[in-house]
């Protein structure tokens, strides 16, 4: 490889090669274009979807659900994780339940979610919440438990009260791990939203895929997939930027 290739050029090249392979596969595989559309068709129908406002509407719907469910999970999960990390008895009490519920796929909750919340945003938000909540709780608990005990001795030595231990030791110490866990979790949430929307709602990118399949428009299906991928890339980029902020940099450089 070119040693001084710009960091933007190499990733771009890999996309171009993929699209090329795609085109060649469609051209020489003999598949019908209705079953496996070629890049150009997909691009043209992408234009149609954008012009009709359909794509924007579904994207916004999905993003809204992910944001709501993800924030809810973070707002409830981080404090619970801190509590469990600091309280040995509470951790003994809650950990079995959390570890029991954690491996149950959020998708398994779909029937219940639909019965409880009906059709609409609520069941989807609930499913995203489930997908993000447990990983965030576990990551926070582990982060709190693995804080270097020296820092708690320092706190005791300088007469910190409980609130100061939380605000000056625990929270700053776990921020880097929290950012990493949020970065991993947002991807899971984004995967789950698409699945949830195929069943529980009438809008969103997942619904667009399902609806296009019913209309046998594989080009629309692929458009939705591309948008999902691009947004996933974008979400990861934002979360990666978070790990460069000043309050997390110490953890990546230290030791």
């Amino acid at each position: 490889m070119m040693p001084c290739a710009k960091p933007i050029l190499t990733p771009l090249l890999s996309f171009i090669i993929c699209i090329l392979l795609w085109e060649l596969t469609v051209r020489y595989s003999g598949w019908d274009k209705n079953i496996f559309p070629d890049p150009l068709t997909v691009l043209i129908s992408m234009g149609e979807l954008i012009r009709s406002g359909c794509l924007l509407k579904h994207t916004v719907a999905s993003l809204f659900r992910v944001t709501a469910g993800f924030y809810l999970a973070a707002i409830l999960g981080i404090p619970l994780g801190i509590f469990l990390g600091r309280n040995y008895t509470a951790a003994l009490f809650f950990n079995p339940i959390i570890n029991f519920l954690r491996p149950i796929s959020p998708l398994a909750w779909i029937p219940l979610a639909m019965l409880w919340f009906g059709i609409g945003d609520q069941p989807a938000i609930f499913l995203i919440f489930l997908s993000s909540f447990f990983p965030i709780v576990v990551a926070t608990t582990v982060a709190v438990q693995s804080i270097n005990p020296t820092y708690f001795y320092v706190a005791a030595n300088f007469d910190f009260n409980k609130y100061e231990v939380l605000s000056k030791i625990v929270i700053p110490a776990i921020i880097p791990s929290i950012v990493t866990s949020l970065r991993l979790t947002v991807t899971i949430a984004w995967i789950v939203v698409v699945a949830a929307e195929m069943i529980a709602v009438q809008s969103g990118l997942g619904y667009l895929i399902l609806d296009s399949r019913n209309g046998l428009r594989m080009d629309y299906v692929m458009d939705a997939m591309i948008v999902i991928g691009l947004i996933g890339l974008f979400l990861d980029y934002i979360m990666r930027r978070l790990s460069n902020i000043e309050s997390t940099v110490w953890a990546t450089v230290e030791r």
């Binding site: 020296t150 320092v154 005791a156 030595n157 300088f158 700053p172 921020i175 110490w250 953890a251 230290e254």
Partner: peptide, 20 residues
């Protein structure tokens, strides 16, 4: 009966809070 700021401990490995 416990730690106090009257006797400060200087740690073997850095006891500085790395986020400050």
């Amino acid at each position: 009966d416990g730690p106090s700021s009257n006797n400060i401990f200087v740690f073997q490995h850095s006891g500085l809070l790395p986020w400050m």
